[in-house]
């Protein structure tokens, strides 16, 4: 599903050049659950940006489902992104001014799906995440675990092939964290590919494979059993 080769990303300020990704090469197969680990500044977030088609690499190749996307422009990337990729963040990133229902509905709006179908699909996913009773609440009225469930609901509502999770349990206590990890495992078992950046060895154990990064390069890969 994902095949990157010699990927490079360099950030330049006036006098400092920071190499975020240094000829990075790896592959994620369809249906895999991969955890990416490494110290702060090792290039995890940059990688996630590029995998999520939010940023473009300076050099190298990025095949997404067999299509070379490294040189896609912003419009094409957005198009591919909104149909194929869902995001889950550490800090949930729900829009405070929108209700639970409206937050989850957002990706469908940008896909141009008509209101009746949107309603049906949002309700189905809220049901699945057991958050239906909170549909008209605003994010600040929910607990952290509930907020992350809404965020996951939003990530999966458009049936993406790939979910990118950026420390999804980082702001949660352990029981809520486990709940979210269980949700992700569920989704993976139903066929969704997941790439998760995490600092937590505990969470990484939910994955099939752990990629460890340092200074913009992969250092080891552990296959989980």
């Amino acid at each position: 599903m994902i095949r990157i080769k010699n990927l490079e990303k360099i950030y330049r300020t006036e006098d400092v050049e920071t190499v975020a990704l240094n000829k990075l090469t790896f592959e994620v197969k369809e249906g895999e659950f991969v955890a990416v680990m490494g110290p702060s500044g090792c290039g995890k977030s940059t990688l996630l940006n590029i995998l999520g088609l939010l940023d473009d690499p300076d050099d190298g190749s990025f095949l997404f489902n067999g299509i070379e996307v490294a040189k896609f422009n912003e419009r094409k990337r957005a198009e591919l992104r909104k149909r194929n990729i869902g995001f889950v963040f550490q800090s949930f990133n729900l829009i405070d001014e929108l209700t639970v229902f409206e937050n989850v509905e957002l990706p469908l709006i940008y896909l141009g799906i008509k209101a009746p179908e949107r309603k049906q699909r949002v309700e189905a996913v809220l049901d699945k995440m057991q958050i239906m009773h909170r549909r008209n609440h605003y994010p600040q009225q929910l607990s952290g675990g509930q907020q992350q469930r809404v965020a996951v609901a939003r990530a999966v509502v458009n049936n993406p092939k790939l979910i990118l999770a950026d420390e999804p349990t980082g702001n949660l206590d352990s029981s809520n964290g486990n709940e979210v990890m269980a949700l992700l495992t569920d989704l993976n078992e139903q066929g969704t590919t997941i790439v998760m950046v995490t600092h937590s060895e505990h969470d990484a154990r939910y994955s099939h494979r752990i990629i460890r990064m340092l200074d913009g390069q992969t250092v080891t890969e552990n296959i989980m059993v």
């Binding site: 999520g52 939010l54 912003e74 419009r75 957005a78 198009e79 992104r81 909104k82 149909r83 995001f87 990133n93 729900l94 829009i95 957002l106 990706p107 940008y110 896909l111 939003r154 458009n158």
Partner: peptide, 10 residues
Amino acid sequence: GVRKVAGARK
């Protein structure tokens, strides 16, 4: 940010 991630174009 959320809107962009959810698929909004510039």
